[in-house]
Simulated scan of single mutants.
Amino acid sequence: MAKKEKEIEEYLTHLYVHVNEIEHFALFSGLSVQQFIKNFSDLSALLLLKHQYEDASFNMHTQLEFVVKEQYNHFLKDYAERPSVLCLLDFSDERKLNMLSPQEQAELLYIAHKKEAFRLPFYHHLQNRFVYLSDEGQQITKIYFRDIEDINKLIASVFNQYIHEKMKSTAFWRKKNNVILPELSIEKVDAYADYYEDGVLMSLFKLDKTNYGIEIRSLPENIFPDEVLGDLKDHLDKPADLLIQF
C-alpha cells in the first residue's frame, strides 16, 4: 500500500474490472475498443453485430457486415469520430460464416440485442476468441473470453499501452539515454486474479522516475460499474487493498 495519501491528480489512469470466470466474461470501465484491438491485433476479422461503420463488407449468408485486419485502423478512426453502441466478435475466415446454422445466427442476434448469452458464445466454425459488447460512451464494456487467461493479458496491455503512449513525447530523450520503460507482466496481474471476481478499481500512478504502481481497491457489490469512474473521488478516498509495483 502507498505510504502517503495521493491527490486524485497524481493518478495517471484507472480501470474497473469485474471477472465472472464461470460464464467466461469480464466487465470493464475505462477500456476502449482501440485498446482492445491493439492488444489483440492478430485477430483475422471482426463480425459486426451492432455498429454504425459504413465501409464494412457484407456477408450474404448471415446478412451481417464485417471488417478484415487491413481495415482495422480505418474502422477505429471512424469509431473514434462517431462513437456508438458496438457489438462484435472475431472469426477466422468468411467462408466459415457461411457455415453458421440458423440457430447460431439467432444466438448472435440475441447477444447483440441483450448484451448477454444464454450459452458460452464460442462457435466451432468461427473459432472466435472473444465477443466484445460496449455502450455508446464505452462507460461499460462486456467481453466474453474463450481463454480466461486473455483477461490478464488485456489488463497488463492497457496499462503498458498507457505508459508507452505517455512517453512518446520524450522518445528522442529515451533513445539517447537508453532508458527501458517498465512493463507490467501478465504474471503480476494473474497473481491478484482472485480480487477481480469481486470487482476492483485499478489506479495507475508513478512511484518514482522509473517505476510505476497500481493500487487495487475492492468495490462494494451494490455499485453500478458504469458509474465507477464518475465516482472516482469517493473510491480513492478509501485506502487501497493492495499495491502492484513494477
Score class of each variant (00 low, 15 high):
Met1Val: 14
Lys6Phe: 14
Glu9Thr: 10
Tyr16Met: 07
Asn20Arg: 04
Ala26Gln: 02
Phe36Trp: 05
Ile37Glu: 00
Phe40Pro: 01
Asp42Trp: 03
Gln52Asp: 07
Tyr53Glu: 10
Glu54Val: 08
Asp55Ser: 11
Asn59Glu: 10
His61Asn: 10
Glu65Asp: 14
Phe66Lys: 03
Val67Phe: 06
Glu70Tyr: 00
Glu70Ala: 11
Gln71Gly: 01
Phe75Thr: 10
Leu76Lys: 02
Lys77Thr: 14
Lys77Ile: 13
Pro83Val: 05
Cys87Glu: 08
Leu88Tyr: 05
Ser92Asn: 10
Arg95Cys: 00
Lys96Leu: 06
Ser101Ile: 00
Pro102Thr: 01
Glu107Gln: 15
Leu108Asn: 03
Tyr110Thr: 05
Ala112Met: 01
Ala117Ile: 11
Phe118Gln: 14
Leu120Pro: 02
His124Gly: 08
His125Ile: 00
Asn128Cys: 10
Tyr132Asp: 03
Ser134Arg: 03
Asp135Gln: 07
Glu136Leu: 04
Gly137Asn: 11
Thr141Val: 15
Lys142Met: 08
Tyr144Asn: 06
Arg146Lys: 15
Asp147Gln: 11
Asp150Phe: 02
Phe159Cys: 06
Tyr162Trp: 15
Ile163Pro: 03
Lys168Ser: 02
Phe172Ile: 14
Arg174Ala: 07
Lys176Trp: 13
Asn178Tyr: 02
Val179His: 11
Ile180Asn: 11
Pro182Lys: 08
Tyr195Ile: 00
Tyr196Gly: 05
Val200His: 01
Leu207Thr: 13
Lys209Asp: 12
Lys209Tyr: 05
Glu221Ile: 00
Ile223Asn: 03
Pro225Ala: 12
Leu229Cys: 01
Leu232Arg: 06
Lys238Ser: 13
Ile244Asn: 01
Ile244Trp: 02
